[in-house]
Amino acid sequence: NQFTTFNMVAIKLISVSLAALLSCVGALNITTGALGNATIVSNNPPGVVYVATLPTTEFNNPNDPRGNIKGSVAATANPNGIGVSISVSFSNLPTSGGPFLYHIHDAPVPADGNCTSTLGHLDPFIRGETPACDATLPQTCQVGDLSGKHGKIEQEPFLATYSDDFATTSQGLGSFFGNRSFVIHFANKTRITCANFALSSTTTLPSNSNSSCAANSTTTSGAGSSTTPTTGTGAAQFTGAGAKTVASMTSLLGVAALALLL
């Protein structure tokens, strides 16, 4: 009788654990944008490069004696046409107020240099800024949220090269950024400076390393920066180590429950 009672209690505990685990899995299979998750762009035109270079005068504090942040964001299609390769280079960053954020914004910078006029982040799937982007599920983030998907600016100088599956250099798509801008923000989201993307005469990205900065350069890889599609349209999916962990836990709990029933 004691053994039977123990089995019943154990089975109940395992059932509760399985239900909780499955609810977590279900919670992650969500679509965050009103129009669904961001879709992978697979037909980006080869050899097309867009570059946005920061101006000499800072928007937030035009009289800053240190001058504006220096640098640029450049992007071109990956060799297989899936997503774009993005090269980022920033220096002369503010000495406080970080870590800094940067995003592709929906509208270009007007002639007067007013960064507020660039409107919000590039967001063709109508996701919104909250909740914050989960970098492990980049398809659920705003297309323009580069620092959310690939990392904030946390070092001086800041150099990074990564691939983004969801931005595009193909005109006519909502994720196209060639006629838009990017903005650098303080951690509190105040806009510091901004620049417009423009079609470059070159067909390759500028070098992202030099003798003084090479040691600090970073190359980002993973779910948010793979040139091989990890997700498609629709709900977010478990991929990589996280999926294996969930699958293993589920299998172990199932085996344990079956063993106690026998």
Rank of each mutant, 00 (worst) to 15 (best):
L93H: 13
N63I: 04
N92W: 04
I69E: 03
I69L: 05
P94F: 01
S91K: 10
G67L: 04
N60G: 02
Y102K: 09
P65E: 00
P65I: 02
G98C: 07
A75F: 13
N61H: 05
H103Q: 14
N60E: 10
E58K: 11
Y102A: 11
S96W: 04
G97P: 08
H105V: 09
D112S: 12
P108W: 00
D112H: 01
G81I: 12
N63K: 09
P62G: 05
L93T: 08
P65D: 00
R66W: 00
N61P: 03
T95Y: 03
N63Y: 02
S89Y: 12
E58V: 03
I104R: 03
P108S: 04
D112M: 07
P94T: 07
A107V: 03
G67N: 07
S85Y: 00
G120P: 05
A75W: 10
T76N: 14
L101A: 08
G97T: 10
K70S: 04
S91D: 15
S96Y: 03
S117I: 00
S85N: 15
T56S: 13
T116E: 12
L101R: 14
A107H: 06
T116Y: 07
H103K: 10
P99Y: 06
L93F: 12
N68S: 14
T57R: 08
I104N: 03
N80G: 10
N114E: 03
P110M: 08
P110G: 02
F100E: 11
V73M: 13
S91Q: 13
N60S: 06
A74S: 15
T95E: 12
F90P: 13
C115N: 04
S85D: 14
N68K: 05
L122A: 00
H105T: 09
L101G: 11
T116F: 05
G120E: 01
V73L: 15
L93V: 08
K70Y: 00
H121P: 00
F100I: 12
V109H: 00
I104W: 03
S117D: 09
T95S: 15
T118H: 01
S85M: 13
V88T: 14
N60I: 08
I86C: 10
H103W: 05
A74M: 11
P65R: 00
P108K: 03
F59T: 05
G98T: 11
P108L: 06
N61E: 09
G71N: 09
K70C: 04
A111N: 08
P99D: 06
T118I: 00
F59R: 02
T56M: 01
V109G: 02
N61K: 11
E58Q: 15
F90W: 06
N114F: 05
P65Y: 00
T76V: 13
T56G: 02
T56K: 14
S91W: 02
T57C: 01
T95V: 13
Y102C: 10
G113I: 04
I86V: 15
F90Y: 08
G120L: 06
P99M: 08
G81S: 12
G67Y: 05
P65W: 00
G98W: 07
G98Q: 12
I69H: 01
A74N: 13
V73I: 15
F90H: 04
I86D: 06
D64L: 05
